[in-house]
Design a protein around this nucleic acid. Structure first.
Length: 604
RNA sequence: GCCGCUUUAGCUCAGUUGGUUAGAGCACCUCUUUUGUAAAGAGGGGGUCUACGGUUCGAAUCCGUAAAGCGGCUCCA
């Protein structure tokens, strides 16, 4: 089965799902039902009736009846006004709304929906004359198609979940029930997919975070405020140190800024107007000043830049700060480490002359690329542009030129990219590096952003060669992004088997009995003297010793459960031979004591 | 914030149609065992079943509210 057939099959199953729901609940009002990765969904309004997963067998049974009936999918066309009459008579208010929008303004209004869902082609952008319908048995739906020939030809499917979804994706619209299903050509492929989902659960960072003792949460501390254990803190520190070193190489200097500020700072930057309701407020009991917990670091950094007169000779000026920001995210948006209310950014800002932008972006792209190569993650890049909404600040011509510059930089660096409107920051376009989690969901990690707005709003300037006053450009960059979010993806990517240089506990010495204790001291002296220099410039070895009164089997089991990459087994035979038995994920070998330091240094 | 689902010892889970002192494994503590490649043996401590309210002679089991977690939607500087 090819991609087109699979698509038609999934699309047909969306219709059959709606058809089954209509049989069971004739009052159902239908929204849209597109194909998504691995399956399909249909948005349904059942008024007060709530579908739960307990209803799935019933719905699936009804779907199988439709499939068994083997109806043909028949296409028909109606003039737009006839379509409107159909929706009206069928008491389908959502379809009616779509058709009215199509009649009034074509796809330009309706493009917030998958155009494939509508009975029109995507290129007739201005006016719609006719729309197409598909009928199978007793069910007819506005639809562009294509579909399977008959209802029997839809492969294997399974309803997965039901979730709330706003009509046309707008928070102010009524909420519908979205029925999700997966569908594949064969039952085997369906089961393989379910198995993959099971395996993904084993790699879930929330599960591993607990099992590997990386972080915890406390109801006393609060929602979205993770607490990092000693092990988890090693992860944070090591990756942040590496991220910092990559930029220090290019002349970035560390700065430090306080975590609270007067809200005037964010009024000046524009953040207050856009994100005011997501800022934590702090009131000084001394002065009754209204303060906020910082949600962002760029405005602070502008004030360091502005603290002295700057010459074109000093440019660019590059600041670097790994620091925690606080955002009062809506509770329903929080989850694991991916979205938290206390997020740590490996943030940096370049204040540059216009002629320096290209090189600076190039260097930051090089740093991001190197970091993710070392980490072993293959990312694609999203060029995040503005759309024609009104939530962006700054001159439209500057925006166009900035978007062009970012695109050129990405192309020059031969990165795998895609472009997306409406994903820009309010002050400028972005280059975002996208990583995927265990379930294939994409998350933004590294970001490089061009900003002409904040320098203007803060009145930043430097003296040019002719003595005139010029405005710098800001280039925002975080390589890890939010360290918490980065870790959520990194944990799932590695399944908890971190590269040697990042592993919280790199080495565990396992003793067989207490006769080896003196020899273990020799081993520890060697490990103490060994420092890894790649990729982080100074990385002391992190090792522990398990000399408990327990069996070797148990010690191995526990060390392996914690995914300690290097286990050094020491028994009388090793003492005798002046060696250690080195156990890694890939097997076991004997290493002479004299060669241990070199062996460890060579590990990645 | 919205919709749906979930919530039993530190962890993973059992708990029949509401009915005597709520169970198991792992972890923890004590003792014995000094061990060669993924769990040595024995004994012991620990939960009032997320919280509050209701129904009932009686509730971990039914109902309501809240909180937290999960899956989505919306949002993400």
């Amino acid at each position: 089965m090819n991609e087109d057939q699979l698509y038609a099959m999934r699309h047909s199953l969306a219709h059959i799902t709606a058809q089954a729901v209509q049989h069971l609940w004739p009052e159902a009002k239908f929204g849209v039902g597109p194909v998504v990765e691995n399956g399909f969904y249909y948005d349904i309004d059942l008024g007060e009736t709530k579908i739960s997963e307990e209803d799935f067998p019933k719905i699936e049974a009804e779907m199988r009846k439709v499939i068994a009936a083997d109806y043909p999918f028949e296409r028909s066309e109606k003039a737009i006004d006839d379509g409107i009459n159909w929706a009206s008579e069928a008491a389908q208010p959502y379809k009616l709304e779509l058709l009215n929008d199509l009649k009034r303004a074509g796809t330009t209004v309706a493009r917030d929906l998958d155009a494939n869902e509508l009975g029109l082609s995507t290129d007739d952008a201005s006016k719609v004359e006719t729309v197409s319908f598909y009928t199978d048995g007793d069910f007819t739906d506005l639809c562009r198609g294509p579909h399977a020939e008959r209802t029997s030809r839809v492969g294997a499917f399974k309803l997965m979940r039901v979730a709330g979804a706003y009509w046309r994706g707008k928070e102010t619209n009524p909420q519908m029930q979205r029925l999700y299903g997966i569908a594949f050509a064969t039952q085997e492929e369906l089961e393989a997919h379910l198995k993959m989902l099971e395996e993904a659960k084993q790699r879930d960072h929330r599960k591993l975070g607990k099992e590997l003792d990386l972080y915890t949460t406390s109801q006393l501390v609060g929602v979205g405020l993770p607490l990092f254990t000693p092990r988890g803190t090693v992860l944070r520190d090591v990756v942040a140190q590496y991220s910092n070193q990559l930029r220090q190489r290019y002349g970035f200097k560390k700065v430090w800024t306080p975590h609270i500020t007067k809200k005037e700072l964010y009024e000046a930057s524009g953040h207050w107007a856009k994100f005011g309701d997501e800022l934590f407020l702090v009131t000084s009991q001394e002065t009754s000043d209204k303060m906020v917990l910082k949600p962002m670091n760029c405005p602070h950094h502008t004030q360091i830049f502005a603290s002295q007169p700057r010459s074109y000779r000093d440019m660019p000026i590059r600041y670097l700060e790994t620091t925690t920001d606080y955002r009062d995210e809506k509770t329903g948006e929080l989850g694991g480490l991916n979205r938290v209310r206390s997020l740590t950014q490996d943030d940096s800002h370049v204040f540059a002359r216009p002629d320096q932008i290209e090189l600076e972006i190039h260097q930051l792209l090089a740093a991001a690329t190197e970091l993710y190569q070392t980490i072993g993650m293959n990312l694609r890049v999203r060029l995040s542009y503005r759309d024609d909404g009104d939530s962006y600040l700054g001159d439209i011509e500057l925006w166009k030129s900035a978007q062009e510059q970012l695109k050129n930089a990405v192309i020059a660096n031969k990165l795998d990219y895609f472009e997306q409107d409406g994903e820009a920051a309010f002050y400028g376009p972005k280059i975002d590096f996208m990583a995927t989690d265990a379930l294939g969901r994409e998350h933004q990690v590294a970001t490089i952003q061009l900003d002409f707005v904040q320098p203007e709003r803060f009145g930043l300037e430097y003296a040019d060669s002719d003595g005139s006053s010029r405005r710098p450009v800001m280039i925002h960059c975080a390589l890890l992004g939010s360290i918490e979010r980065f870790l959520s993806v990194f944990i799932e990517h590695t399944g908890g088997w971190f590269p040697f240089w990042v592993a919280p506990e790199q080495i565990r010495i396992l003793t067989i009995n207490e006769t080896v204790n003196e020899y273990v001291k020799e081993i520890e002296a060697i490990l103490d003297a060994t420092v890894l220099m790649q990729p982080v410039r100074y990385n002391e070895l992190r090792y522990t010793r398990d000399d408990r009164n327990e069996s070797l089997g148990k010690k191995i089991r526990e060390a392996t459960a914690l995914k300690v990459p290097l286990q050094l087994i020491v028994g009388p035979r090793d003492v005798e031979a002046r060696q250690v038995s080195v156990r890694t994920q890939s097997g076991e070998e004997k290493v002479a004591l004299d060669e241990l330091a070199q062996y460890v240094t060579n590990l990645q």
